[in-house]
Amino acid sequence: MQVNAISINGLWFDYHGSEVLKDITCDIAAGDYVGVVGPNGSGKSTLVRCILGLNRPAAGSITLFGIPRDSFVDWRRIGYLPQGLQMLNPGFPATVREIVRLGRLSTKSFPKRFGRDDAIAVDKALELMAISDIGDKLIGELSGGLRQRTVLARALVNEPDLLILDEPTTALDPDTRENFYATLKDLNLNRKTTVLLVTHDSSTIGLYASRLLYLDKKIVFYGDFREFCESAEMTGFFGLQGQHLICRRH
């Protein structure tokens, strides 16, 4: 039996007394490409942070690759890109190579030292994101798009089984965005990497993802695009034109 990459059961999260996530239950199978969409404040980033253990839910359980989240230690299997990291301190003195190499810490035990295999993994990740030529540049000197690609290279450096990306394309220009989505699709199809992509760009997600999770504090819809495109309830949410835009590939 194949183990789900993520299983969430009865998850509740509240912040200062107001409910942000209500009774979330869903499974994300290994190899799925799930787009998470929803209005501002719908709890998309909170859901991601709960999955990663950065927020502690009020109730419910989460397993990663069949292991309860609190016992999960195999972080090399997960690559994460948080929202807003491109806003980092412009005076931060680390090079692109140093930042990408930090992703390799999840493969190390104390005292954590880097070796030749780490340098090879970093080179591969830089190549994948087409930033090999800026490896020795300071991250603070880069444009938002290049910073984003650096942090993506960091997320990919261990060739993870699960990629969790929170609004990854906000700082990217249209060409880079297209390349980025193509890279994700390639990773999903050829390496069977599970992708959980949070985005506000619901019109584009239909071109790439295989499943859609529409969140508005609770799960409003979770299923494949065929179900989504045929759902009258979703027509009510997105309007006929909006639904058609999301469904144009399907």
Partner: peptide, 17 residues
């Protein structure tokens, strides 16, 4: 390396174990 990782970003560091 751990000090560098938390200095860059605490949350990314946490998801590196």
């Amino acid at each position: 390396n751990d000090l560098l990782a938390i200095t860059f970003d605490e949350e990314l560091a946490a998801t590196s174990g």
